[in-house]
């Protein structure tokens, strides 16, 4: 039950960010779907740890954004940026700072590492997905060249 509330809250937040980032109204639904995918994956894979969880979510969301950007004929950032927002480790960053201030260094370390893990995870996800996309595009180009040569 509470997971559903969290999921909906994430979607509401993504809608807000899409508007703040100036995503055009006609792309809004697709940007928010990306955010919903990210939220859903984040909740489903939570027990796998911050790194794996954010890698999976970032990977899928990047693939989704690249695909939708081609379908909707708009820059990839239009969809990728709002979609990645739910993965941003705002909570972990906050608890790192607040635990340092209350001199609970063990907790601060844990949260600090979670923040770092999440950032690295997002980076890894984007990286692998972008590699797949560029590989796919190169193969497509090669096939096209071969066909026009024949």
């Amino acid at each position: 039950m509470s997971d559903i509330v969290v999921f909906i809250a994430g979607i509401v937040g993504t809608i807000g960010f899409s508007v703040l980032f100036g995503v055009k109204p006609r792309h809004l639904v697709f940007a928010v779907i990306g955010g919903a995918i990210a939220c859903g994956l984040y909740l489903l894979t939570d027990q796998l740890g911050a790194f794996v969880s954010s890698t999976i979510a970032a990977f899928i969301v990047t693939l989704y954004s690249e695909l939708i950007a081609r379908v909707r004929k708009a820059p990839t950032v239009t969809f990728l940026t709002p979609s990645l927002i739910p993965l941003v480790p705002g909570g972990a960053l906050y608890y790192t700072v607040s635990n340092i201030l209350s001199k609970d260094y063990d907790a601060a370390q844990t949260y600090g590492l979670t923040t770092l893990d999440t950032c690295l995870g997002i980076a890894a996800g984007i990286l692998v997905a972008s590699l797949f996309v560029s590989l796919f595009l190169n193969i497509k180009k090669a096939i096209k060249n071969k066909k026009s040569a024949a």
């Binding site: 509330v5 969290v6 809250a9 994430g10 979607i11 509401v12 937040g13 993504t14 809608i15 807000g16 960010f17 899409s18 508007v19 703040l20 939220c39 739910p86 705002g90 909570g91």
Partner: peptide, 17 residues
């Protein structure tokens, strides 16, 4: 745009519990 800020901040406050 301000409504967007309401959604964004409010949504993620709830998202993080």
């Amino acid at each position: 745009i301000y409504l967007g800020a309401v959604f964004a901040a409010g949504g993620f406050a709830a998202f993080f519990g």
